[in-house]
Amino acid sequence: MFKEQAQMKDKVRFSSSSSMLLPLVFIIVVIACAAVSPMFFTAENFRNIIVGSATFGILACGMTVVLVSGEIDLSVGSQIALTSVVMATLAPKSLTLAIIGSLFVSLCIGLINGILLTKTKMPSFVLTLSTMGIVRSLALVIANGQPVYGVPRSFANLSNAVVGNVPLVAYAMIVMYLLTWFFLKYTTLGRSIYAVGSNSESARLSGINVNRVKIATYAISGFVAGLAGLFYTSYVTLGLPDGAVDYETQAITAAIIGGTSFFGGEGKVFNTFLGLFIVGMVKNILNLMGVSPFVQPIAIGVLIIIAVGVRTRKS
């Protein structure tokens, strides 16, 4: 906070230009992709991108909230797997019960993460690294390591449903982003999350109950992971205890390409949305061009290094 003025000036310059940087990159990527492949700029292809990114996209909403609070949640990918197993296991009894039950389970895991974090004061990276393994293991134990059949056709059809030529998941994702934006911008809890991420000691001295805010943040992250899990289950039509591997890193990728600070206090969920789409489009164009999927992570890696490197590099 007390950097010398010289650096501050640099930051000012950077922050005014960086607000334009991301939309610019977004547009450049769109144009570049359209130039490379005639198949890119088609409704069908955009539907593919949206459907392919939907689960990460929803997950990235929760991840943005957690990152703004100055923490991280690595356990969300495992939570999706557990949600899908719970969903598929309960669905034959009652679909409503299955939906409520799986959301409840993920909310509880989020709460447990938050409570453990505030009680032990351990770094969230380490804590959620542990719960990531624990939750994954729970899913595998419940499902006995096998895919769980039992997701009703009606629920599975949701992922294919289209309203006015736009997939349902696209609406769901847009609603999620609007809700998250509204939550972060206009609710007291949302602003408290920024405050805690900005400087938790100052936030505490300003009378904010930091622990409660952190627990709430993880509860939100868990609940959002549960929602993402429902979409995932509908998409794969199974309870997959070993599914959704790496989803947390995808969500983190979208958020940080969108400019969310890894140190908390800064981040905009709409920028996460742009980040998500930039990644989605890059993957998509590589597919269209027939580039091997083994190469794709290289492209994403380079993209992160460039996107974040440009921001952090001092003049």
Partner: peptide
Amino acid sequence: DLLPTLTVAENIFVEDIPKTKLGLV
């Protein structure tokens, strides 16, 4: 004891954020 990544106005009112009738910021 400030919150560096928040605005000046938010820092001033962090303890008692002005709210609309609906309880929003």
